[in-house]
Write a protein that binds this DNA or RNA. Sequence first.
DNA 1: TTGTATGCGTTATCAT
DNA 2: ATGATAACGCATACAA
Lengths: 343, 343
Amino acid sequence: MRRPPTIIDVASYAGVSKSSVSNVLQGKRTVDETIRKRVLDAIDELGYRPNAGARYMRQRSKVLGVVVDDLTNPFHAELATYIEAYAAKRMHSILLVVTGSQLEHQSSRVRSLVEHRVAAMMFLSAPGKKALELVGPEIRKVFVGIRMAKELSIAVDDSAGTSLAVEHLAALGHKKIGFVSAMLGNDPNVEAARFKGYQHGMRVAGLGVEEAHLLREVGARNSEPSPNYQEILKQFLGRRNRPTALVAALDRVALEIISAADALGIRIPESLSLVGFDDITIASHSRIALTTIAQPMKDLARLVVDAAIDGPSAVAGGKPPASIFLPPRLVVRRSTAQAPTKR
Amino acid sequence: MRRPPTIIDVASYAGVSKSSVSNVLQGKRTVDETIRKRVLDAIDELGYRPNAGARYMRQRSKVLGVVVDDLTNPFHAELATYIEAYAAKRMHSILLVVTGSQLEHQSSRVRSLVEHRVAAMMFLSAPGKKALELVGPEIRKVFVGIRMAKELSIAVDDSAGTSLAVEHLAALGHKKIGFVSAMLGNDPNVEAARFKGYQHGMRVAGLGVEEAHLLREVGARNSEPSPNYQEILKQFLGRRNRPTALVAALDRVALEIISAADALGIRIPESLSLVGFDDITIASHSRIALTTIAQPMKDLARLVVDAAIDGPSAVAGGKPPASIFLPPRLVVRRSTAQAPTKR
DNA sequence: TTGTATGCGTTATCAT
DNA sequence: ATGATAACGCATACAA
């Protein structure tokens, strides 16, 4: 048989009408047990699989769109994995588009999603305005790990996370605590929130924020570490009055800091403490052993999928769109230690 | 307007028949320029997007299925990114399913792909027999980075890769070169091919393969490193007569070896040289600096997508299904060094 | 060149 | 409880 069997083939094979087959497929209770069995056997015999495309012409699609700028980002890859897993549990499929850094390409990929009439779109990275306008109000939008004004965002409490980081460092006796976020693609709002948490943490600890301890110039969004990022970092770390501890806006940045520090002979944690953010898998490797702020990825995934399928009200109690923030968790490893004693 | 506009809405708005709209959409040259413009304007005005599901009932689907067991595996994530990018360039979308380690779940995810009538399925991980049988002959199957008998497989030349690794180590004066592959999920055939390349490399170098220098017990497939994997590794590395150099079947295994060696105080590369396989992103980090065998991921992605869209004959000259193997590349970093002088 | 009619596989409505 | 039939949105063969 060249082409896959249709519901009609099943019906005629089972000697019933296609309506009955459909009823069996839909799990309707009104169908007689003997007929149900005949249909089930026919399906099995013919290897029939319902055509999802045809089905979605009459029913709500069970496909969820995921848009991410860079799957190579371990945090995104891990989050996407959890999302797919939970979506599958809820009988939904994932149409994945990765947009890369080019804005036009982004629109084209998002357009593809709307043409597929996905039930909802989940954004792991902030889309451009153009791309966002494409999607229209009939398709549900949920933002994960990033913040989008006027839209439902589900994320870790970024500010609380960096506050936690500062608190941890302050408890270790650090006074000169810096913050670096530059040039590694992430949502600007997220960066801002994490910086805010850092500021807040400093205030609570009774510490002052010095401009010289900050590295925040924002480069191209959604981009790989630029070749000269290491140089910038080295210059920052090479300063006479450099911080004794650093809060990195993401683990990826922390990884770069480690490289720069190594190159400069600055020992971590002996003479520089470092806290990351995200707790990507490699952070736990013995060579890295990064103290970091872990995101509750499974909860994030569950909530975002629920919101995508059931609507915002299913996860947000009040009047959506309201954002919901989950608590972060400090994971202490070996990149942080007691502040060096004053020389 | 509650529901998205259809081709009929566009037609009536433009004052033409739906056929003309369709013709414009299909890029037919036969349509009058003035009508084409009217249609295009109407589309723009209404924000019309063709319904892909409905379209695919008459045309070949432009959705490609990707099945992977674990997106957390950096090699898979990177490969998937390239695949999506090239598929997009060819105007196709990616329906992604991640199967995890459970076999039944695997079938369910693959079933979902066939119900969506994807144009082709691309396997980044070896599926179980059950899952494979589900998919039937009308859906094209391509295997990437793994080997499947009787099917089109596109992969790096695994044997050549590990041979390269051995050659590199032998050139550095190593005699006792081991091979470890145990317990980190991968296709058994791939493991076998890489081991074969190791053996061949040893033979060419005039070196003998000793059983004691091998760690190949295969644990659960498709699984995360088990908790006691470190223990096994430490025991292996702690032996009196351990190899002075190791070929790891994948970078992920190499990462584990590094941890174990560190824990034992075995210095890399001074007293143990190590070569990985895949060249995942983290391998280039200064703390890891892993000498490894790089796969031509972009070429892999391009070929597999072409094969998925155009059929096996588009990439394989002869009579498909034939497998095609791409040459690997040795990337030398700092995990390999001259063999320690005999004591 | 443009419009009309039909089919694609499924669900949903409505008689029976 | 079951079956006939009308949508669903689009492409295509054919007629005009």
